[in-house]
């Protein structure tokens, strides 16, 4: 479970990235953070991951305050960020430092099989397409079986087909262990396809504007009328054009 309490973060004397943000995400819940650029959604995610130190407030993972990167938190960046000098398999095993070698091999093999890249285990990252590389990044984030998975605009650099494919794939993988999932996105459709709840942030300073429960059964059909109706409601909640 992820709990964010009165989180604030300031960069330099002027720029208030986040102001008094509180949020609770239940175990196994999928939450999407949306908002205009500069609303602090990425900062919020990085604070939750322990990659940044909060100015005020705190983040709790399974009840324990976060003080730096945490073994039960996985992170998928906007870019795959694979280490180019490691093979695909070694990149996945990078998340398993300290685990016995034999277990690393077994777990990375399972994680790569899960994302459908067994055949590429010994390839260099330079040989992968963008979608494949991002699937390796997902395998790397999940191989240590985190209870919380944070994703920072993970599919924003991909073409629409690969993107839809990976969204479905992510839900599929999520269904295995049901980790808590927090996803930053600027794609409302992505938020509605994936999330149980959409949290809308406003900028200057970054703060929670409102929460939007997505009331649709899975799997969700993007073209269905009720999906479109939810999208309309979300757009209204975002105050677009105002």
């Amino acid at each position: 479970m992820l709990r964010i309490e009165h989180l604030g973060k300031q960069f330099g004397p002027r720029l208030v990235a986040l102001h008094d943000v509180s949020l609770q995400v239940a175990p196994g819940e999928i939450v999407a953070l949306v908002g205009a650029s500069g609303c602090g959604k990425s900062t919020l995610l990085r604070l939750a991951a322990g990659l940044e130190v909060p100015g005020t407030g705190r983040v709790l993972i399974d009840g324990a305050p976060v003080a730096g990167p945490h073994p039960s938190v996985g992170f998928v960046f906007q870019e795959p960020r694979l280490l180019p000098w490691l093979t695909v398999r070694q990149n996945v095993e990078f998340a398993l430092a300290g685990v016995p070698k034999a277990e690393q091999a077994a777990r990375s093999a399972a994680a790569l099989a899960r994302v459908g890249l067994t055949d590429f285990a010994d390839a260099w990252p330079r040989r992968l397409s963008g979608g494949m590389a991002q699937r390796v990044a997902i395998a790397r984030a999940l191989v240590a079986r985190p209870s919380v998975l944070l994703l920072d605009e993970p599919f924003s650099a991909l073409d629409p087909f690969t993107k839809m494919d990976l969204q479905a794939h992510l839900l599929d993988i999520w269904a295995d262990d049901r980790p808590t999932l927090v996803l930053v996105t600027h794609d409302l459709e992505e938020a509605l396809v994936l999330a149980d709840r959409v949290v809308v942030l406003r900028s200057r300073p970054g703060r929670v504007h409102g929460t939007f429960a997505v009331d649709l059964p899975r799997p969700r059909n993007r073209t269905a009328p009720d999906f479109q109706a939810q999208k309309q409601r979300l757009l209204e909640a975002l105050d677009v054009g105002n």
């Binding site: 990167p69 073994p71 960046f77 960020r81 280490l83 990078f94 998340a95």
Partner: peptide, 19 residues
């Protein structure tokens, strides 16, 4: 960004330099 990946997986000091 790659150094940050190292930090995310809790490498520090010598391990971060080496890997």
């Amino acid at each position: 960004k790659l150094v940050e990946v190292g930090r995310m997986y809790r490498l520090s000091g010598l391990a971060l330099v080496r890997r």
